[in-house]
Every structure is written in C-alpha cells, then in structure tokens.
Design a protein around this nucleic acid. Sequence first.
DNA 1: CCAAAAGTGTTCGAACTACACCCATGT
DNA 2: ACATGGGTGTAGTTCGAACACTTTTGG
Lengths: 230, 230
Amino acid sequence: MSAAFYQKEVKFFVAVDCIILGFNDKELNVLLYKRKFEPMKGEWSLMGGFVRSGESINDAASRVLTECTGIHDLFMEQVGAYGDVTRDLGERVVSVAYYALVNLNDFNTDLLKEYNAQWTRVSDLPNLIFDHTLMIKDTLARLKRKAATRPVGFNLLPDKFTLPQLQNLYEAIYQTPLDKRNFRKKLNSMDILEKLDEKDKKSSKRGAFYYTFNKEKYDKLLEDGFYFSL
Amino acid sequence: MSAAFYQKEVKFFVAVDCIILGFNDKELNVLLYKRKFEPMKGEWSLMGGFVRSGESINDAASRVLTECTGIHDLFMEQVGAYGDVTRDLGERVVSVAYYALVNLNDFNTDLLKEYNAQWTRVSDLPNLIFDHTLMIKDTLARLKRKAATRPVGFNLLPDKFTLPQLQNLYEAIYQTPLDKRNFRKKLNSMDILEKLDEKDKKSSKRGAFYYTFNKEKYDKLLEDGFYFSL
DNA sequence: CCAAAAGTGTTCGAACTACACCCATGT
DNA sequence: ACATGGGTGTAGTTCGAACACTTTTGG
C-alpha cells in the first residue's frame, strides 16, 4: 500500500454500526447504548466503531460485535452503506450498517453495564443519533424478507426452543398474527426440526415440547432443491 | 465541519461502482469499460468514481451514472459496500456498488466511444478488475428478487414494449423459461398495462401489440394493498 | 375444578402448472 | 403456400386461509 495512485481524491472516515437484535417476551429488541464520547455524548445510539487500516469492513463489524456481546461468530449480514453528507454531526463519516441476531438470554449483563447498553423493544425506540433510526427500520424490513426464505430466525432463539416461542418470534418479525395450526403444519412439512422429549414448563402448566433446528438435515434438503419458507 | 472529534481514526478513499444493466436481444447486458488510468489500466471494469467531499454516496452514484449515460434520474439502487483490505490493488478503497436499469436502445453511442465503453452480455463477462465480478453477481441476485415483487423491469424496456419482449426480459432476469399463457394471464390480472393500437413488426410478420406501463394505475392499486408479483 | 396455554385436521377457494392449436402476414 | 412468431382457454393440482375443540396440569 504505497503507490499513491489516487492522490487527488478525498478520504473519509468509515465506520460500522451494528443493529444487534434479540428476542424476548414476544418482541424484538435492539441493543442500544448511551454514547460515551462527543459528539452527541449521552444520547442513545447503536453500537459502532471505526474501520481500522488493516481491517476489512466485515472484520470491523465482527470486531465490534464481539467486543460488545462477548460472543464470537454471530449471525451477521450487511444492511448497506449510509453516506449522507451531514449524517454525522462531528465530521463526514460514511457508515456501513450490519445487523446481527443473538439469543438475548445467554447475554452477559456485566457487559451491558460496561457499555451503558440496554435492550430496547423495537416498537418503542427512543430518539437515536444521526440516521440510526433509519438503519433499524431498514434492518427490520430486511429481516422480514430474509426470515421468510432462510432459517435465520433460529439465531434469535436458544438451541432448544418450543413451537409457541418460534411462532411468537415470527409474529414479531412479520408484525402480524399467524394461525397456530397452519404455522405448525408448514414447519412439520419441512422436516428440519427435531422434537425432544423434554418440555418447557416456564410459560404453561402443561408444558411445551422443546425442538432443535437440525442444520444437517436442512443442508441436505437444500442440495435437493428444497426451499425454506415460513 | 471542523470539530475534529475523530482525529485518531484512519480515513479511506470511498468510491462508487455502477452496474449499469441494459436489455437487448433476450439477454441482460452490463456496461463495461476499459480502464484509462492506473492501476489496472486497460483492464475491463465497471463504471466508477470517487465520492467527493460535499457529496453524499447516493449523489456520487447519480453523478457517475449521469456522466456516463447522459441520462438523468435513472432507476438506481444500492447493492452494498465492498470493503476487503486488498480489493483495490492501488490503495485501500472502500466501494459502494449501485445498479441502474436503462433502456439500452436510447443510448448515445458517441458516449460509449468516449468512455471506451461496451455493452457485454452478463452470461459472457470478461475478467474484471478487483471484486467487480462479485458486484455483478450480487446485483443479478438482487434484481431477481426485486423484479419479482416490484415493477422495476420496465426500466429496462422502451416506453412502448410488446408482451413477448417483456417475457423475454423476465426470462433473462430469472434465467428460466416461462409459460407464455400463464405469464400473460398474470399480467392481465394485475391490470397495470395499457394496450396500444400500434404494433411492433420488427420481430414478426404478424406484429405484436405495444403496451405501456401505467404508473398511475399501479400507484393507485398499491394504496389498496395490491402487490406486484411476476 | 378451573384457568391457561399446548396441541391437533378438515374444508374451501385461490393460485399455479401444464398443455395445443389457430391467427396474421411478409416473403 | 408456407414459415414465423403472436395470441388465446381449460382442467388438474397444489398451496394457503379459515376455523374449534380437546388435552394437560399447577394452583
């Protein structure tokens, strides 16, 4: 890196902003934090960070995600680049948004404190700095499409989950109620879940059977031209 | 713009690359040009340019598109940001890809010469510099989804087009043959096209009726919860 | 025994697929 | 007259939508 081909051009700060989504109690939540530095110190914001020189944008997003969740190899996908001239009030910054899906429960609460972070229902967002509200809106639209055609929703649940939980999740993603019997019929026909003997009794007296997502089965089906759809 | 809040951070060149798609003779084509400057001078490349200081990323893409097509207000959409460390062999450059859909026929051939530009079938791409092949691949996947749910395909056709033309276009986008009668039935049921009295006799002796896309009708239907789907 | 959530099948209509022949016309 | 592409309808099937009752069990 030295040839200096592009000397006449302008350079920009490039940042990543992470929309970290979790699911709890029938609602999607996003991890927000109170900014610890200027500009806009003390305001609500997404987790973010600047891209460093030896680092790809993807690497930067991974790094930020690992830093503030303590989890490696999260499911993560780029949403897009945000580049309005005045989007950052400090200086000109181009930001690339990524969303990540995590299981809200296996979350380190110490880490939350350390970062002034807080889970917030996406239906109940405070004012956010810059264009972060737009980034979240774009993310939710993208997730809606994605979850309908790829089994990414399972990243928002524990390894063992119940069908009512899964249905609540999809109702939250689609923002619409689903028919219980049709939902289960569809899942059943795809044959990508394993039913366990164990039951979850936290949310009912009768208890709901736990299931797991069988990735091996799913991958095998994919090869045969199968398409996930919910 | 002066506060200098982020002084310790690194800056990057930010570019846009434009995947300009046209349609001709049953195939999607992309506008490529031979690079006129180092690095990789003389190699095939997408149209691109650096983002300037007073300019949003979107503005930069619009500017580049207008420059090299002579057309204002093309249909254009962001594909995403490409930020691998070594993606540009010159220096570290982050690039944001945009695709645009144009009517290949009302194209200024002088402009093509001026830019060393050439329409190339997407099924028959030469080696391209950097990650431009990936950008095109991502674009085609995106267009496939988009064209199925939004009436963007019409941007690739003249104002007046025939149903065989439209079907050829969709077959090119989906990379699969479609049933003529089913295709027309679907279009008919949507009621968003206007049939003209005039016929196109270029591709058959009998001639095929021209149609136009009625945007007003489409917008009105949208309000009533209608969804385009082809 | 009762409240609360889990689980289970069937019917109806809409939408998609497959499919084959006649039409118009320039040469 | 014939070759070439344009235009049309129906039947069968699949898929999605609507819908109500029984089961389990902790309190």
